[in-house]
């Protein structure tokens, strides 16, 4: 199925409600292998909800979500399958505070992928080196700075060897000097060909790595374009207003 479209993620007419509230309205989105997509939009527009539907942290009510040929429904097996392929990085890191950095990274490989401990640790160290904090491996998350914690969270996801990475405002809980160290890691990751969906308001990052920028408001995708056209020549009035607010000051 994936072969015919070449897409790793497909959202077809996805609708979602929180109770009476219509959060996602007819979302259509195709993500190609290796594509980097930046999603932006005002607060409450449904960005988080959309990417959380992709690994079924939220359940959608209408439409289809297909990830790497597996259709998302209530089948626990499919959900497990998809979550193995899709890594996610959260705004507030969500590291496990009772485990060391290394244990945070090896937990899922050992228990989900049934990997021997030695091997899992080797892989974890490899990714900790990639995010430039191998020396913190035996500390607890509480002992690290925010930027370091977020890089551990990225390494933790990478240890599962995902084909897609979702980022939900990975830098918005960080101090300015820490934002850069996290973005650097993400840029490097993008350079290696990882498929990425990233909710962020870091427009510099969008210009640098995005293949496509998606703008959402009121639960809809209003505009999608390559970053060049998106920033220089926005199509809709709403986008313009948003950009002027984000870039304005």
């Amino acid at each position: 199925m994936t072969q015919e479209t070449g897409n790793i993620i497909t959202l077809k007419n996805v609708n979602k409600w929180y109770g009476e509230f219509h959060v996602l309205k007819d979302i259509n989105l195709d993500v190609k292998m290796g594509e980097k997509i930046v999603i932006c939009g005002p607060s409450g527009s449904g960005k988080s909800t959309m990417i959380r539907c992709i690994n079924h942290l939220e359940e959608h009510q209408e439409g289809d979500i297909i990830v790497d040929g597996v259709i998302l429904n209530n089948d626990l097996k499919n959900i497990g399958q998809i979550r193995k392929e899709v890594g996610m990085v959260f705004q507030h890191f969500n590291l496990f505070p009772h485990l060391t950095v290394l244990q945070n990274c090896t937990l899922a490989p050992i228990w989900v992928k049934k990997m021997p401990q030695k091997e899992a640790e080797k892989i974890a160290m490899k990714f900790l080196e990639r995010v430039k904090i191998p020396d913190q491996a035996n500390k607890f998350p509480g002992q690290l700075s925010g930027g370091q914690q977020q890089r551990v969270a990225i390494a933790r996801s990478l240890c599962m060897n995902p084909r897609v990475m979702l980022f939900d405002e990975p830098t918005s809980a960080l101090d300015p000097e820490m934002i850069k160290e996290v973005l650097d890691v993400m840029v490097e990751l993008a350079g290696e060909g990882m498929t990425m969906l990233c909710v962020t308001h870091e427009m510099g990052f969008a210009k640098k790595v995005a293949d496509r920028v998606i703008f959402m408001d009121a639960g809809q995708i209003i505009e999608e374009n390559d970053p060049e056209s998106f920033f220089n020549n926005p199509q809709s009035e709403r986008t313009k207003l948003f950009l002027s607010q984000v870039l304005g000051h």
């Binding site: 079924h56 942290l57 979550r83 193995k84 899709v86 890594g87 937990l107 899922a108 228990w111 599962m160």
Partner: peptide, 19 residues
Amino acid sequence: GQTEACRALGLNEGHRMKL
């Protein structure tokens, strides 16, 4: 957030509780 992180990593419900 801990629950969400577990789910995103693909841990099943039993492992999430236990670990």
